[in-house]
Every structure is written in C-alpha cells, then in structure tokens.
Design a binder for these strands. Structure first.
Lengths: 341, 341
DNA sequence: CTGAAAGCGCTAACAT
DNA sequence: ATGTTAGCGCTTTCAG
C-alpha cells in the first residue's frame, strides 16, 4: 500500500473507455474545448471517483516546465524577508507556481550552489532578494535566458526586471520630516555601497540635503560594511566622537538605527532629546522600542507579490520587456524624532 | 539558446563512447564501484567539461522519489517559524532534499489544498508545524503511509513522529522562578486547547502549581482562542477585573504576554511592580521591550533541524519506528519578573 | 563490468 | 473530435 500516486491518466482512460490522450486533453484547460462535453463530464467524474491527481513530475519532464521557481534570500530569520516571501508565494500561487527557497547568508558560494540545485530541479525562473549591484548570478541568468526578477535589492545590469522600494522618496520623507522639526545638521549612517539599497539611500541623502538647502557636510555620512546593529553602533560612535554637532541621524535601516540607539546611550546622550533618529524598513516591534522608532515603512509584502506576478509574466510571455518598478514607502512618525529646542 | 538543461546523460555517453546507463552508474554513488576507474574518471571529466547537470525531474519520474518534502506552517511572518524553517532546511539539506513551503494561516481548507498540491508534486514526505491535536491531515498521512513529522506542535494520534519543546519543563522553570521570587498566587493565560502547546502548558501549569504547593485556584487560569496579543489583552483584562489578587502571570506565549503588558497598563498598574509576567518562545526583540520580558526560550532552530533529520530517516529507512522527541527549553530571566514586596 | 531494452506518466505532433 | 505514436531524461532489470 501507500504508493504515492497510484491512479494514472491511463487508469482513468481505461475506465472511461477512451484513449489516455483524450483524458489529458480534458484535464488541460487549454485543450478541453476540443472534446465532446459528454466525454469531458465522464472523464471528470471518473477522475474524481478514482481520486486521480496529475503527476507534476511527469508533466514537467514532458513539457520542460515545472511550475516551480527558485527564491534566493539572505536569511529567512531576518524579519525583513518573511513578508517578501509571503508576497512572492501569493503572487505566484494564483497561477499554480510553487517556490523553493534558498538561504544564502550573503555568501557568494552558497548562492552559486543554491542556483545550481535549483536549476537541477528545472526551475522555470528565479527571484533574487540577494542581488549585489555587481552580481554574477544576474549576469548568468541574463546570458542564459532564464527568467529572473530581482526584489528588494536591484543590480546595476541592464535589461533585468526588478521590484524595489523607492529609496529616494523614503529618504526624502525622513529628511523633510527632520527639517520640519528644525534640524539642520543631519547625519546619515549609510549601508554597504555594494548593495543597491545602501548606495541609493546614501546618494539620495546627499541629494535631498542639498535640494532642501540643509548643511551638506560629507563628514556627516558614516559608512558601514553591513546592515547590522553592530555596524550601526560602531559607525554612530565614530560620528559622535568627531564632535560634529549634528542633532539628527538618518539611519539606512532599522538595525543600524538600533545600533545608533546604543551608541547614543553609551555616550551619555539621549534619543530623542539630544539626537533624533530615523530608521528604514519598519521591522516588527520597532514600535515597542524605547523610544518607538520613527521609520520609513517599505511595502515588503507588495514587493514580493509584484515580483511573483512579474516572474510569471516573464515566464508565460517570453518576450515581455524587462522593467524596473519602484513601490512607494511611507513615513511612520513615532517617538525617536522631536523638534530641536 | 537558453534551453534549461541542454546536456543530457546521452551527450556525455556519446562523447565518452559508452552507453548512457554506464554514465548513469558513474553518476550514482551507489553503483559507481561497479565501473572501471578509468571510465569513471573519463565520464566525470567529460561531464564536467560539458557542464552536465542531472535532471532531477527525469530522475524523479523514474525513481518515484523527488527528494522534495512539503512543509506546512501557519504563517511565515510569525517570528516563531523562520528559525524552524531554517532548521528544517539545514536538517534536510545535508541529504540533498529540498523543501517547498505552504502558509496556511491555520485555515483547514488551505491546509488540505496545500497538501494536495504538494502531493501532486510527489513530495517524499511532509513536515507539519500546523498540527492540531485532532488533525485530519495527520490521519491521512498515517493511513496512506506518507512519511510525516510534526514539529513544534504535536497531535493526539498514535504512531506519529514529532519534535516538540518540553512544555512541562518550560512551565516548571517559569513557575519555580516566580516561586523563588516569593509569588504564591500565580495566574496562567492559556493558549487554545485545540493545540498541543496550549493544552500541554495549561495542564503542566496546574500540575506544577500543585507540586510546588502554591495556591491552586482554577479561577486563575484564563482561556484564549488564539496565541495572539489581542487575546492576551482580553484575557488579562478579564483576570484583573475579577479582583483575584494574583501577583504574577505565566503567559502561554510571548504574544499573550505582550497583550498582558497592555492590559496591566490599561488598568493603571505596572509590570513588574504590581504584576510580574513571563512569556514563552523568546521571540526576537522581546529583550527590547519595556520591561524586557522574562520568558522561556524554545530551541526553534533545533526543533526544525531534528524534524528535517527525522523525516529523512523516515523516508530512507521505511520501517523506522515513530518517535516523539522533546527538546529542553531554557528560562531567560529579564526585567518583567521581580520579587514580591 | 558494461550494453540493451524497457518504461516511469504525461503531452504533443500527426493522423484519421 | 479522438486515437496513434513517440519520447522528455533517467534508472534498472536483464543479458552477456
């Protein structure tokens, strides 16, 4: 007993008294119209009665399309990614596609390996949440024509579809909010420049500071090597040690902002009384911090859902053009930003 | 161009001048020993040169084993589950298995549907993090002999393998900690009794209260219909309204504890000064709450990893017996519990 | 130790 | 409108 998929298309065909290919045509929505309604009804009835379930493996071998896509993420335990993944699954799911996941911890070798196993499994396309601006996997997919969508982060390559947050807008919202509160010397703790998000937020910060007529002092931009609390702490401590007289910090993401909280408190200062801080992402629970974090909310679920939909489009309409899409973030004002006194 | 998996076992065979089945034997570790070393070397060299990648779909059709397993979780955006999923993938990964995920939101119809699509994809086994004590999917898998492992939650059915936290120990740690702090009237906000975790923690609470000689008052156990902040708030408000004179609450999980924080503050009381609170799970960031939450840390990653390993064992050793395994939790003492004054 | 042959379950020309 | 035929890429008896 216990065989996985006992009843085949042949069993149904024999029972109904038609040829297997007729059953196949009934089961496939695209060809169903060519079969006499009575036979369609009979096949469906017998299939239901026998508990027939199509064998996707066999179909995939024959059609060379597995309805499976691969998703590369850095780390599912980073709270940024679960909503993206759910969005992807919901964006795909409506079309019968299924995702397989690979956690790569931002390690290039693991990314390569994950792509290899996914391709061995004949995925129909790939979604990368791991892209670096200069990413060999992106180049490989483009070269080989494997449908590809980048989500959350994008790459510098041309001709690649991507769904990312509008970082320029997000940074502008944060900076204008601080300007409204009377801040004029605003620091930025940037993310890694090898990632599109780090670079875009950094560049946008510099641009908006000038556009708003605020004090443009390059010394007020601190660099980090990772979007992490540790790096935020280190960079913010550096900033404070330089005695630059800033009153606010725009952190490139929430984890960096958390590190900044710590550095501020380590220096004997208080957020927001001495220094206002803004984050980026609106991770779960940053509303429960002391003080609750003012941050830029990225529509992660929607990013994922659009990425899923876009990939399906790319797979099913092979010559649909590559498009770069941005989604609008939203400023969430909480207690970590106050007016200068 | 752009064909997914151009080079087949036949291409390699032709190039080397052997039969495809010989190449297959070389590529399969179990049969490699039967082939002359020179041929093995040559086949491997040509395979590498041509960039041969085995087609898992074809292999799966032939062997009826896809090396794919299905994982059902309630919701990946619940921070409980990402570490479990990573654990599962790491537990499987070493053996070449890949997981496909299904988010079901605790909706039975979605669970059934997810299992159906997974079975259509010929999964070799299932891991459920969604099990209810009385779960039809569990019954179905047992009846049909589909390898199954339950993780995090278990079911009442016999003969099913499970990896869960030792809830009795976790509750005992929390209660004894509160007893040490001088608390004698301790309340419990229980989880849903339809879930093994809700029921086990509830039962363990009652038992340990008696075993420790504390005041066993059934009125001090509040019920909830979900492990959620809203339900925690509601149940805790009820408890407070009854004027039961308790000084501590053991919440069935962290979200319920968060709701309790809110109810306590709504009632004009303070945690921990008026009421100490313990949680369960040690979710990310509960160390950053005000006050930082004393909680029972569940080894989620390890639960997942063991589940992955166990499922592989079940698949590859068909008559290995079902086992129920518990892993030990740990009490994390923070600021939400203090001595009675 | 290796080749031959068959077939997993399905779909897609090609016939009729 | 349906049946025939062939074969996707791989593994696995069975021969030799």
């Amino acid at each position: 007993m216990a065989s996985r998929s006992r009843v085949t298309i042949r069993d149904v065909a024999d029972r109904v008294g038609v040829h297997p290919s007729t059953v196949s045509r009934v089961l496939n929505p695209a060809t169903r119209g060519r079969i006499t309604p009575e036979i369609v009804a009979k096949v469906n009835a017998v299939a239901a009665e026998l508990g027939y379930r199509p064998n996707q493996t066999a179909r995939g071998l024959r059609t060379n399309r597995t309805q499976t896509i691969g998703v590369l993420i850095p780390d599912i335990t980073n709270p940024l990614f679960p909503p993206i993944i759910r969005g992807i699954e919901d964006g795909l799911g409506a079309h019968g596609y299924t995702a397989i996941l690979g956690n790569t911890d931002n390690i290039a070798a693991r990314e390569t390996e994950a792509v290899a196993t996914m391709r061995a499994r004949q995925v129909d396309g790939l979604i990368l949440a791991t892209a670096r601006r200069d990413d060999p996997i992106v180049a490989e997919c483009i070269a080989e024509g494997l449908p590809l969508v980048l989500v959350n982060r994008t790459a510098d390559a041309d001709g690649v579809s991507s769904i990312v947050n509008d970082d320029a807008l997000g940074i502008a919202l944060a900076v204008r909010h601080l300007k409204t509160l009377g801040h004029t010397r605003i620091a930025h703790i940037a993310g890694p420049r090898s990632l599109s998000t780090g670079e875009a937020r950094r560049r946008s910060f510099l641009e908006i500071i000038k556009a708003e007529g605020l004090e443009a002092d390059e010394a007020l931009v601190a660099e980090t090597s990772a979007f992490s609390e540790d790096e935020g702490l280190r960079a913010c401590a550096d900033l404070i040690a330089q005695d630059l007289e800033f009153t606010a910090i725009v952190a490139a993401n929430d984890l960096i902002a958390l590190g900044a909280y710590e550095a501020i408190s380590d220096a004997g200062l208080t957020c927001p009384d001495d220094i206002s801080v803004t984050g980026f992402n609106d991770m779960p629970f940053v509303d429960r911090l002391t003080p609750p974090l003012t941050t830029v909310r990225i529509p992660h679920y929607e990013l994922g859902r659009e990425a899923g939909r876009r990939l399906v489009e790319l797979i099913e309409t092979p010559d649909s053009p590559a498009r770069a899409t941005t989604l609008r973030p939203e400023l969430i004002v909480r207690g970590s930003t106050v007016a200068v006194t």
